[in-house]
Every structure is written in structure tokens, then in C-alpha cells.
């Protein structure tokens, strides 16, 4: 949480700041950012998603402060996933969490949000017996809770521990985010917002209230901010060795 923890990698940070992100830097004008990186206009009513789009997320860990949890708060507020009063802490849902990573060899420390990585080849969808876990054509990995039987094999298969099981009857769901006892759930990349042409809640919060470490957009569109940025700076995927090709890319480690 110290300053040195926060910016251990100044050159990278400077390079980023000179890039496209600089225009959107929340430090100067948070207001501008609200207008700038619109993912796309929402689709017309009745129009299905296509694979021409692949939604992705770029997270710059050099701008992600340890201890900052605006993304988590925003996600929780948006989807109301901590409303299980009888569940123990380890039974609570956790759609997004902050990881603090420390390299014992070099001493390098960084912090990052971890959530569903929206894999191109999601193991959760591979193992799901009913097809309730699936990857939407535009790359968003979702659970169809109508046909989820609650076997939890997807949670066993997910390398990122990104999924949660609802352990008790809950109420007070948000109209756009239905969820209930006995089914598995995870980050939806705020599909209800994305479909309406808005940013995911975590990205919005990070941009407005925190370091502006998250960029959301269409990885298939070479002109999008995320595509232009990832073509310029080094990015990596968590457990890239597994070959799952997550749609969430990280920079800074």
C-alpha cells in the first residue's frame, strides 16, 4: 500500500501515460473519460451478438494500487452478490477480488483484480454437463442459470477460482442480474451494460474513482482503444501456459 509498492515500474507507467491512455487519464479530467471510451453503441432490439466482436479487458497493474477496491465495491453494488446472510465468509460469492502478488526472488510486488477471465476456450464450458456454462459469440462467458443443475464441476475446472456457488436462498436481486440458490455464477462482464453500449461497472469505477487501470473494448476492432494499446505495450494473460486464451489481459508483470 506504500507508494513504492504502487509504482514499482515507472518506465512502463510513463510509457503508458504518453499513449492513448493519456488522453483518458482520469487524474486530469475524469469527466472526459465518461464520454471517450464507449465500447460500442448498444445493439438494436432483436439483434443477436456476433463473433465479429470480442470483448476484452486490459488491466494495467502498474496503475492498480494495493488496497484499492473500487472495482470490487462497484461490482458488488451493481450485482448485489454479497447478500447471503447465513453463509460463512468462505461460502460468500466473490465475483471479483484483489490479488496481491509478491515475487520472493526479486521482491517485485503488484496488485490486480481477478475475476472471470472470459477465456476463448473456457474449461468451465467444456466440463458443464448441461451446457449451462457457455461462451457467448462475443467472448463473454456466462452461466445460463435456467439449466444450471448446481453440480459445480465448472468451479473445479476453473483455474482462476472465478466462480461462486450460491449457498442459500437470496432475495433482492437486481432486475438485470438474476441469481439464486443452488446455481453457479461469476462475472458477466456486466453483459447487461455492454449490450446497452455501456462500460462494465468495475471499469467505470476504476476510471472515475481510482487509477484508471482498466480498459474495456473490442479486441477484434483494430481501431478500439484496447486494441491500439495492446499492440503497443507488453501484455500477458494469467496462466497463459494453459492455453485458454483469456479475454482479460494484464500489463505490468
Amino acid at each position: 500500500m506504500t507508494a513504492s509498492n504502487r509504482k514499482p515500474h515507472d518506465p512502463g507507467r510513463r510509457r503508458l501515460l504518453t499513449g492513448a491512455l493519456a488522453a483518458a487519464a482520469s487524474v486530469i479530467a475524469p469527466g472526459i473519460l465518461l464520454v471517450a471510451p464507449r465500447p460500442a453503441a448498444g445493439r438494436a432490439p432483436g439483434e443477436p451478438v456476433t463473433d465479429r466482436v470480442r470483448w476484452g479487458l486490459l488491466i494495467d497493474t502498474t496503475r492498480c494500487e494495493a488496497g484499492c477496491d473500487h472495482c470490487i465495491t462497484a461490482c458488488r453494488t451493481e450485482h448485489d452478490w454479497d447478500n447471503a446472510p447465513h453463509s460463512r465468509p468462505d461460502q460468500q460469492a466473490q465475483w471479483i477480488r484483489k490479488l496481491d502478488v509478491h515475487n520472493p526472488e526479486t521482491g517485485y510486488t503488484f496488485s490486480l483484480p481477478m475475476m472471470c477471465q472470459h477465456c476463448e476456450n473456457p474449461p468451465c464450458a467444456d466440463v458443464c454437463p448441461t451446457g449451462a456454462s457457455f461462451r457467448r459469440a462475443d467472448g463473454i462467458v456466462l452461466v445460463d442459470k435456467h439449466i444450471c443443475i448446481g453440480c459445480r464441476y465448472c468451479m473445479i475446472a476453473c483455474p482462476y477460482k472465478a466462480r461462486s456457488f450460491v449457498h442459500e436462498t437470496i432475495g433482492g436481486q437486481k432486475p438485470y442480474s438474476p441469481r439464486g440458490k443452488g446455481t453457479v455464477e461469476s462475472c458477466t462482464l456486466c453483459v447487461h451494460r455492454v449490450d446497452a453500449g455501456r462500460l462494465p461497472a468495475c471499469v467505470e469505477a476504476c476510471t472515475e474513482k481510482a487509477g484508471g487501470a482498466m480498459v474495456f473494448g473490442d479486441l477484434n476492432d483494430p481501431g478500439s482503444e484496447i486494441s491500439r494499446t495492446v499492440s503497443r505495450i507488453a501484455t500477458t494473460q494469467v496462466r497463459a501456459d494453459l492455453g485458454l486464451d483469456p479475454g482479460v489481459l494484464y500489463h505490468g508483470f
Binding site: 467444456d126 451446457g131 448446481g150
Partner: peptide, 24 residues
């Protein structure tokens, strides 16, 4: 199962890539 009442779903929806579905 989280939803044992949905056994019919398990019998009508199959994802053949899943070893679980094979096991059924």
C-alpha cells in the same frame, strides 16, 4: 446437486464435451 429438482434438465440438455455428461 444445487438444484436436484432439475434432474430432468440434466437428462434433456447435453454438452458432449463434458465428461460429466458422458458419465450420465
Amino acid at each position: 446437486l444445487g438444484r436436484p429438482d432439475r434432474l430432468t434438465v440434466a437428462m434433456t440438455h447435453y454438452n458432449f464435451k463434458s465428461i460429466f455428461a458422458w458419465n450420465i
